[in-house]
Amino acid sequence: MGRSGFGAGLQRRAAESPFGKLTQAGRDWANGTLFNTRPDDDATEAAFWGINPALLTATETKGIWESNVPAVHAFLTIDSQFRMTALARGGVLVHGLDYNGARAGLEMAGVAVTPDLWSDIQMIEAGAVGELNRGRMQ
């Protein structure tokens, strides 16, 4: 889940995006698919299911919208700053970003954090926490 290769082959959209796309970026980061951007993924999946790839529309593509790229870059700058608790039965419970550590990391990286950017980072955080904790709180 490192930062290398970010942007290489990522499909981006210029349109404004709903917060759901940011939350999905967090889930994708958590499950290791954020950088799964082989250009043939959609065509390969379509062929597997017997779907004509020409029928795929822009709403069915994967990737990060252009308007979300700054938030994803900022999140990847601080993606090691999560607070976690060891669980007695094994594993960990992820609480979220350590905001003091996140602030320090963003400042040291020279990222100017606006209220809108911070809100976007928190949406990615929410998706990541949900994915990382899936099945642990049942």
Rank of each mutant, 00 (worst) to 15 (best):
R136V: 07
G90W: 02
D42Q: 09
A46S: 15
E131L: 05
R103N: 15
G7A: 08
A109P: 11
Q11C: 08
W49D: 15
V113F: 12
L106R: 02
P70M: 15
T57A: 05
D120E: 13
A25D: 09
F35H: 08
Q122L: 04
Q81V: 06
N36C: 07
P39D: 13
N52H: 05
N133K: 05
V113D: 13
L22W: 02
D28Y: 01
G130V: 11
A46M: 14
L97I: 03
G91H: 05
G105F: 03
T114I: 01
Q81P: 07
E131W: 06
A47L: 12
Q122Y: 08
T57R: 10
A112L: 14
D42K: 07
F19L: 13
F82L: 01
N52M: 09
S67K: 03
Q138I: 15
R3I: 00
M1V: 11
K62F: 06
A109W: 14
A104V: 09
R13P: 04
L117E: 05
A25I: 06
A126L: 12
G135I: 06
G32I: 09
G96K: 00
V94L: 11
G127E: 08
L87A: 15
L56H: 14
F19Q: 10
E45I: 15
L55N: 13
V72P: 00
G20Y: 02
V113G: 03
T44R: 13
L132H: 00
R89S: 13
A74H: 10
A8N: 14
W65E: 12
A71Q: 08
T37I: 09
S67D: 11
Q24T: 03
G105A: 08
H73P: 13
G2W: 10
G110Y: 02
A109S: 09
Q81D: 07
L22M: 04
L97T: 00
Q122S: 04
